[in-house]
Design a protein around this nucleic acid. Sequence first.
DNA 1: ATCCCATGTGGGAACGATGTCACAACCCCT
DNA 2: AGGGGTTGTGACATCGTTCCCACATGGGAT
Lengths: 346, 346
Amino acid sequence: MTTERRGPLSRSRRPTIKDVAEAAGVSRSTVSRALTGRGYAASDVRERVLRAAAELGYVPDVMARTLKQQVSRSVGVLVSDLRNPFYAELAAGASSEARERGYTMVLTDTSLSAETESEAAEALVALRVAGVIVTPNSPAVSTYLSSHGIPVVEVDRQFAAGSTDGVVVGNRVGARTATAHLVELGHRRIALFIDETDWTTGYERYHGYLEALGAADIKVDPDLVVASGWDVADSRRRALDMLSGPNRPTAVFAANNVLAEGVWRAIGELGLRAPEEISLVAFDDAPWMSMVSPQVSAVAQDTFNLGATAVRRLDERIETPDADSVTTVLGVRLVARESTAPPPVV
Amino acid sequence: MTTERRGPLSRSRRPTIKDVAEAAGVSRSTVSRALTGRGYAASDVRERVLRAAAELGYVPDVMARTLKQQVSRSVGVLVSDLRNPFYAELAAGASSEARERGYTMVLTDTSLSAETESEAAEALVALRVAGVIVTPNSPAVSTYLSSHGIPVVEVDRQFAAGSTDGVVVGNRVGARTATAHLVELGHRRIALFIDETDWTTGYERYHGYLEALGAADIKVDPDLVVASGWDVADSRRRALDMLSGPNRPTAVFAANNVLAEGVWRAIGELGLRAPEEISLVAFDDAPWMSMVSPQVSAVAQDTFNLGATAVRRLDERIETPDADSVTTVLGVRLVARESTAPPPVV
DNA sequence: ATCCCATGTGGGAACGATGTCACAACCCCT
DNA sequence: AGGGGTTGTGACATCGTTCCCACATGGGAT
């Protein structure tokens, strides 16, 4: 054995329970009992073991323990895009709650790709995680993980409501509130920018919009409903088209923070004055919305809490795997700022 | 055995290599060889094994494999605050690069706490990760992990330069460039908002500021150097003080995006016109800076790349553990926007 | 005919931890 | 003196995988 100077530990091999046992002059079993606190261990022996473990810098091997016990203490988290503050905050909430409950968190940014998501899910199965929380990009994930007996919680949107747990926000009521806010201000021509209506988020927000219009006896103009792409550039382009055309709406409801940014940029580029000439309200409050001028009114969701709640739900599911599946709906609130006002008088 | 209908898999037990072996009518060894591709396996046997594995939905247990092979394919990532877009983007870059290289990523948000960080580091040792990348909150992490023979890469700031790898940006040159930009515009009274000078980021940015002033023969006024706290509220408070007092500076250099937000808010609240009455330049370009009016000039760093590069460095280190430690410095660039202009004529 | 090598296959010992079980002291009570 | 309980310890099998080794078969060279 060559002399290695890297602190008390020989870098070549990590101390195992066997090393601790030898150092303390007891058997491996006794070390295990002393360290985990399960089973008998005389107090002097326990102390000797503890000291030996500390001196060697012994840290139990989670892999080996998990293999033996067949229960893991780590959860997988699959989010669509960490660069979007929404997902970043959701991940922050998940991390915090996971830490508190003694779970380690295996995280993958799935880049909004169903393929990446599937690969990541397979990796999580291989890792034998105790459960997974996911902002799903496709229905495949939940099905796949469930078929492997791994508890899943779908967050933000659901593909498998009824068969797996979900944690979402009040999308319909939020969209209805936002739209009704515009209606109350006197708007009749209200555009909707939305990226899709296949996911539950889009579907619910779309219907919330419809409900608010219906309640005010406003006929829906299909030309005012824009199925935009998922990025700022596309949303901006579509907004430029719509807002520079004839007969433009007096207000826009953007169904998420990305679309809102596109619309907001278009408004600025066209030199339209908000809220005098055009009102804007967004679903999902992003930091920039309270910093720009005029500040953007938005339906705020507690995103950090969304992530934290999902981990809580997952933990409960892990405890009682056979209970009926639950969908938790978190509240939202409209933050009326400066971008919404009565429409211009014609 | 009760009938469980959960797809092809009995939920009670996951298929192991032994099940595949029995289904294919061969031994465990043969299955292992057929699946991993190491060692001989007749092509018909291989095919039979592959089919059996697919039918059973067999996914190898990474824990067991790692335990046997004593080499892990997962890395730990410790970031200070996912809600700060800087860290979120860094994590996104790390996730992307880790995925590409076949690593799974165990992530913890350390909430800027040295204690949380230490606990997380211990969990990573227990998990026997192949390596760790960290935006360190204290010198303890790198020392601790290194003492356990785990490769570490410090990102953004370094506490253990020389003994562990690091990936940072050109803090000094960036700060010097930002300050020089203000000097060139004619400013002489330039304030510095900085959260600390103990970390390498703060130290380097502070000295970059000093160098730029020195090069222009401007004497440093200690009253203009504000050692602010680390949050928006504190920075805002300190900025309100300074900017409402007599003899206020004509320009402010904020050493990170959080401090910049505080200063920016203070400017708005005081009704100061930027850039006519006060110029502002930030280190670390955040999304909001290009959205507000006036747009904030900033020293931009490629944060996504910072995370990706760190994972690359870590991977190389894992390959060759005994090579000399390396510090990689990534470039930055000044994005001059609207918040910087010549000082008001007195 | 013998030997050798290439091609396959299976048995079994690890990896590091846990937990069951057997058993050894020891004290207390009859 | 012996039975029964409590307290404490160690041997050993096990978790799922890998991989070293032993061994079997068959064809080609000597």
